[in-house]
């Protein structure tokens, strides 16, 4: 892609550009997001090695123990245990895997579908565009949770089902944004300039149109990643998502609901983990958008 990698080396550095790392250090909220999200991803990757217990191993003798620092707590179970004696800390760590996998994959699938469809609709136009827009309307008329319930019943609840449902219903917003931006970009003179120089459709789309879509798509995608993680949690909470004994923040919250008064630690720790993840994804999204905009460098 880089047309002139060596050109800047031939000349003296003209404008002082602040490195991305410097700018990250100067942006406290972006830094916070990167640190927290990095931590969550780190924990998720290292879950098998750092979690103190097997998250799926029951220990009925140690049922509903409070966190270690409270009366009756066991130092082996830092965040306490649930009804079946599962270690809450281990389950919270393992859940990060499920949630991040589902959140990122579902949004990646939606972005891929939506941007592709949107580019075709906006760039080609005509009958194709009409069809796509009507499809989007139809899609919007079907509540995704309802679709998820139907699909979960039909092909069985699993992480793949959730990803397919959330990804397959989420494309509409990306397609709409993409189509709109492509329509306006297509008429900008720099796109016309590229065409007049002999650029083909592929180059116009990939070099001159798609880069401009990164910011708007990124803004929506970070919000949608949070929503996808939350949607997975709701589905699991309803019993349609991740099936026990596999842990997920949503199913942990669902299990903990009955014990809110007596064993708050069942819901509070996965809840905090969920909140921190969603928050940090949003912060990172904002930061990435700024980093990607040459006008802000």
């Amino acid at each position: 892609m880089d047309v002139l990698p060596e050109a800047p080396a031939l000349i003296e550095a003209p404008v002082r550009r602040v490195s991305k790392l410097r700018r990250l250090l100067r942006d406290p909220s972006g830094l916070l997001g990167v640190v927290v999200l990095g931590g969550v991803i780190f924990l998720a990757l290292l879950a098998p090695w750092i979690s103190p217990h097997d998250p799926e191993r029951q220990n009925l003798k140690a049922s509903l123990l409070p966190p270690a620092w409270l009366d009756g707590g066991d130092s082996a179970y830092l965040f306490g245990t649930d009804r079946l004696g599962h270690d809450v800390l281990s389950r919270t760590i393992w859940s990060a895997r499920t949630s991040l996998l589902i959140g990122f994959s579902a949004v990646a699938l939606a972005v891929l579908l939506g941007v592709t469809i949107g580019v075709f609709a906006g760039y080609v136009g005509g009958r194709l565009e009409d069809v796509v827009l009507r499809l989007a309307d139809i899609q919007l008329a079907i509540p995704p949770i309802l679709l998820a319930i139907v699909l979960a019943a039909a092909i069985g609840p699993s992480p793949t089902t959730i990803i397919l449902v959330l990804g397959g219903t989420g494309w509409v917003v990306y397609a709409r944004i993409t189509r709109g931006d492509v329509l306006s970009l297509r008429d900008r003179s720099f796109v016309k300039a590229a065409v007049s120089l002999g650029a083909g459709h592929g180059r116009v789309v990939f070099r001159h149109i798609l880069p401009h879509l990164v910011s708007p798509i990124l803004i929506v995608a970070t919000i949608e990643i949070s929503l996808a993680i939350l949607a997975e949690s709701s589905l699991s909470f309803l019993g349609l998502g991740i099936q026990p004994p596999t842990p997920s923040w949503g199913s942990m919250l669902g299990d903990g609901r009955d014990y809110l008064a007596s064993a708050w630690w069942l819901s509070v720790f996965p809840g905090i983990a969920l909140m921190l993840t969603v928050l940090s994804v949003n912060l990172v999204g904002n930061w990435l958008r700024d980093v990607y905009d040459p006008r802000l460098s």
């Binding site: 047309v3 002139l4 050109a7 800047p8 003179s189 720099f190 016309k192 300039a193 590229a194 120089l197 002999g198 650029a199 180059r203 070099r207 001159h208 880069p211 401009h212 040459p294 006008r295």
Partner: peptide, 18 residues
């Protein structure tokens, strides 16, 4: 008429690359 996300060198080079 210049792509705001492309450096000047890339813009001028574009026809030659194309």
């Amino acid at each position: 008429s210049l792509d705001p996300r492309m450096q000047i060198a890339d813009s001028i080079a574009e026809p030659l690359v194309l």
